[in-house]
Design a protein around this nucleic acid. Sequence first.
DNA 1: AGAATGACAGGAA
DNA 2: GTTCCTGCCATTC
Length: 110
Amino acid sequence: MPDLSAAEAILAAIRAVPRGQVAGYGGIARRAGLPGRARLVAKILSGNDDPKLPWHRILRSDGRIAFPPDSPGFVEQRQRLRAEGVDVRNGRVHMPQDDDSLDAAIWRPR
DNA sequence: AGAATGACAGGAA
DNA sequence: GTTCCTGCCATTC
């Protein structure tokens, strides 16, 4: 069976994303100490059942929503993001860059 | 064991 | 700035 610790680390990284902010699968994996496991993050999200988890803040590296443009998941994610003030244009959002200064401000442990 | 699949990433065209 | 193609990881058939 898969490493549950890895899954927990990923979930923790996702929960650490502030409201109104977004992150990429690869970025989450990197923050979880699992570089290169972006697809594992997707696997976790597909199998999660925690309604408290801000899964809608996780996007592809391009900033594109990971669902097909007509699927219910796409619509729901888009609505949730807009509800948090995120500008979603044509299924895409402006992704944050690897600025450690801003990055540290966001990911700072509390 | 080999092939197929998926809420992906990164570089090339 | 976008779309396309190839590479990766882990799981399932």
